[in-house]
Design a protein around this nucleic acid. Structure first.
Length: 796
RNA sequence: GCCCAGGUGGCGGAAUGGUAUACGCGUACGACUCAAAAUCGUAUGGGGUAACUCGUGUGGGUUCAAGUCCCACCCUGGGCACCA
């Protein structure tokens, strides 16, 4: 028994594949394009995490399978190396992110080459490459011009450790998605993408997508659609009413007070009427300073202050009811004001209990009737918020806007309509004075800044560079100042899949973010694989951006990923892998020791890809044993005579094909083991074709060894471009089967029977068995159930 | 609290309502060896000498037949969380 010399063979085929561009499809001429993609990694750590290897291998096996099934598979790779994660890592190790990027890039590509994936290396991209981010900035300006970007002052999430604002999606249970610090609220003016404009479409389209169900559910919950009504409550002695949103207009008779969010603009408006203004002001200020975590830690104990002197009128019965302010009502959802119905709402009930407010169990009215009676307006509300895109950091694409006072002044002298006819864009009119940099002047290059660390002042480090922020207005040419914030990393990754097909054509890249023809041919992505943790981050942002780009007529589809599957989590000895636990697995060590094929197969054998697996060192020998056996079988192979083995192989091909399609690679591998066991038992019955079939079935899992064996068998490389073995759906009914004989549902006997027999014949055989005779003691069967080719059950 | 996913040998995990524990790890014994490793072979859910019997988180139910379907509950993992 010889050990498989993986080092030599891996080296040989790695260079062969690259030289011959085996996995580089002709993007223009491909007949059956299949875009197979795994979420690209962010190179923030020492090297590729074993979790990345796990996911990439899972994706690659699918890609190789689809290639052998006759598709032109495009499997690109790149790095998401721009942004806060890479910058934080650079800070941690005391390097400059611009220099560090080159170091990590080299290491990541080395590792990604090692695992033997069929990547289209010519199309790789890095998000920090100015040739890439010029188009990230271009997308920003396109959305800006179309009125999908707005500058708003609002209470936003601020991470005190990362010293920047964050989007809602990047706050996980009150903590920063990157560094786990508690996030606080700050009132700041920031740039937002209007994701809420697409809330309805983002939700409705989910039904049409072939995605992991849990991810769709997470998105549905995040978007949070509620049908309800807006109800106006007049305020005694005040001109404008207070508008509330409710999903239960039918409970209006039980509405005994109103509650406003502390941030509600209605409160300052009512200042003159509020008799206890000092107390109210104090409460509002305190509530605004609370962090998310603080609000949670208070276990929902209700606090609040009555706005004394303010009375609202319940429109259904004209009762005067008090108005309160409390932080259990949130600004930014509905109108930031509610009607409290303590008899029908738990939270309102708790509040009433605490402050001794009346609980009126009033009769309910049918919803439609209630809406009509109080002249309410039916509406749909979404939980989804706009995407906060500004970051007060260094390592990202500068937001390509210039503020120009002259243009702001000019706009003031026009109505929006007039401005529009004069060629001002929607975004420029909405955000007076802000002018996007023209496409031909992009990219706005990120300058080298020695002191790149975040300042914490609410401004990016770029704000300290006069020669950066001083800029000519793209519209009037007078001196203005640049926006100095950079954009969110998630914007970089929200469109990279659009860029891949177009990336290697350098002449093209100067003109287009994505070539229309190539985009039409290759997109949307046919198979996307990645982590479920991106359910409401990357996956939602990408969907939004794709919809926006479609509406701007840059692409002709609105969903980026036709199929998406989430891979599971890889554990080590039952525990989560983390640096703090010290159980990090370095893939390099394993590949060096066992070879890439063994490492790939070991990872995939742990469990179904979508459920993850538990990595234990002990298990890998099962795979190396298999590979050594295959290798030795190949070395000693002498073609055998054709027998029943070929027939039996048919069902194995069928099983393996089905299990790969379902991403159940663990079961496919076990079936490969079954075949090898059978081959070892009866080596002189294995024909050349049988063995070649096996090699083809093994190829997606062990790309290096199978390539070598394929050549040893006298075939031309590459095995990975050959056709997947075919199979017949139904087994040919020949020979015999083991018939199980049950009595009252219990297995009592087994007998070899002819394949084609019917129920009557089966019954005759069964009743003739001595064991069954004894059991029945002469009793006549009440009923006999026969399952063809499997079993017979005698009910007595 | 709500919403998902899941509880199967010592372990990772298989099982179109039809032979529970495939495949692999581990363990035991045997072969080879001076010996060990590697490799190969055999066995391996519990109880029982055996016939047999009990077994897929718990308790019910449907069915000729339930790990699989239905009802109730327990536990674990994940997500959301004062969204009116």
């Amino acid at each position: 028994m010889k050990n498989y010399p993986f080092q030599k063979i891996e080296k040989k085929w790695t260079s062969f594949w690259i030289q011959k561009k085996v996995f580089q499809p002709d993007l223009k001429k491909a007949k059956k394009p299949f875009y197979n993609l795994m979420m690209f990694p962010y190179p923030s750590a020492e090297g590729l995490h074993v979790g990345n290897m796990y996911a990439f291998t899972g994706s690659d096996i699918y890609g190789r399978f689809m290639r052998m099934r006759g598709n032109d598979v495009f499997e690109p790779i790149g790095l998401d190396g721009f942004g806060i994660h890479s910058e934080n890592y650079a800070i941690k190790i005391g390097a400059h992110p611009m220099k560090q990027a080159r170091v990590t890039e080299k290491n990541f590509y080395r590792q990604l080459l090692m695992i033997g994936n069929g990547f289209a290396w010519d199309n790789r991209l890095e998000t920090y490459d100015p040739e890439y981010y010029r188009w990230t900035q271009w997308i920003f300006t396109e959305l800006f011009r179309a009125g999908l970007v707005s500058r708003k002052k609002s209470p936003v999430n601020w991470c005190p450790s990362c010293k920047t604002v964050l989007a809602d999606e990047q706050v996980i249970s009150g903590k920063c998605e990157r560094c786990d610090s508690e996030v606080v609220k700050k009132d700041l003016e920031q740039w937002f993408f209007k994701t809420t404009k697409y809330a309805g479409k983002l939700l409705d389209n989910l039904d049409k997508l072939d995605w992991s169900e849990k991810v769709k559910i997470a998105q549905r919950n995040w978007i949070g659609r509620s049908e309800g009504a807006l109800i106006k409550f007049a305020v005694v002695g005040f001109k404008s009413p207070i508008s509330v949103f409710t999903t239960r207009p039918d409970t209006i008779l039980g509405a005994t007070y109103l509650v406003l969010a502390p941030e509600s603009a209605v409160i300052p408006d009512l200042q003159k009427k509020i008799k206890n203004w000092g107390e109210v002001k104090k409460y509002v200020e305190k509530a605004e300073g609370k962090s998310e975590a603080e609000r949670i830690s208070e276990e929902r104990a209700k606090t609040g202050v009555e706005l004394k002197g303010v009375k609202a009128i319940n429109p259904v019965n004209n009762m005067e009811i008090p108005v309160w302010v409390s932080d259990y009502v949130v600004e930014g959802y509905g109108t930031g004001a509610i009607m409290a119905v303590p008899a029908y709402d738990e939270r309102d009930f708790a509040f009433s209990e605490k402050f001794g407010l009346p609980v009126v169990k009033a009769p309910l009215i049918p919803k439609e009737q209630a809406i009509k009676q109080i002249k309410a307006k039916k509406t749909v509300e979404y939980r989804l918020r706009d995407w906060l895109i500004s970051r007060q950091r260094y390592w990202g694409p500068p937001i390509p806007l210039v503020y120009c006072e002259h243009c702001a002044e000019a706009l003031k002298r026009m109505t929006p309509k007039q401005a529009a006819t004069k060629g001002w864009t929607k975004g420029e009119i909405e955000n007076s004075g802000w002018i996007p940099v023209r496409a031909k002047d992009l990219p706005v290059v990120l300058p080298y800044v020695k002191n790149f660390r975040p300042t914490g002042s609410g401004e990016s480090p770029l704000a300290s560079l006069k020669n950066f922020y001083e800029a000519k207005c793209p519209r009037c040419g007078k001196t203005g100042h640049r926006e100095t914030d950079v954009s969110d990393t998630f914007l970089d990754s929200a469109w990279y899949f659009l860029r891949y097909p177009s990336v290697n054509d350098k002449s093209l890249s100067k003109r287009n973010a994505f070539d229309p023809k190539l985009t039409k041919k290759w997109l949307p992505v046919d198979m996307y694989l990645g982590g479920a943790e991106h359910a409401v981050l990357h996956l939602l942002y990408s969907r939004f951006l794709t919809m926006a780009l479609k509406d701007l007529k840059h692409i002709d589809f609105e969903e980026p990923f036709t199929v998406f599957h989430a891979h599971g989590l890889l554990l080590k000895n039952g525990a989560k892998i983390s640096k703090s636990k010290g159980n990090v697995i370095n893939p390099d060590d394993y590949i060096k020791k066992f070879g890439a094929d063994a490492f790939r197969m070991h990872l995939m054998f742990l469990g179904p890809l979508e459920e993850g697996g538990d990595f234990r060192d002990s298990g890998i020998v099962g795979i190396t044993r298999l590979l050594d056996r295959v290798w030795n079988f190949a070395l000693n192979f002498k073609p055998g005579r054709r027998t029943g083995l070929s027939e039996w192989l048919n069902s194995s091909i069928k099983k393996i094909t089905k299990n790969i399609s379902d991403l159940r690679y663990n079961v496919a591998i076990s079936e490969l083991m079954v075949i090898m066991n059978k081959f070892s038992e009866r080596p002189d019955e294995v024909t050349k074709k049988d063995f070649e079939t096996f090699v083809l079935l093994l190829a997606p899992f062990a790309p290096f060894m199978t390539e070598e064996i394929w050549q040893k068998l006298g075939n031309k490389p590459s095995v990975h471009l050959k056709s997947w073995p075919s199979f017949r759906e139904s087994a040919v009914g020949s020979g015999s089967f083991e018939m199980v004989i049950q009595v009252n549902g219990r297995v009592r006997d087994r007998v070899e029977a002819e394949a084609g027999i019917d129920a009557k014949e089966a019954e005759k055989i069964a009743l003739g068995r001595p064991k069954i005779k004894t059991l029945l003691k002469g009793a006549k069967p009440i009923r006999v159930i026969f399952v063809e080719g499997r079993l017979i059950n005698i009910v007595a």
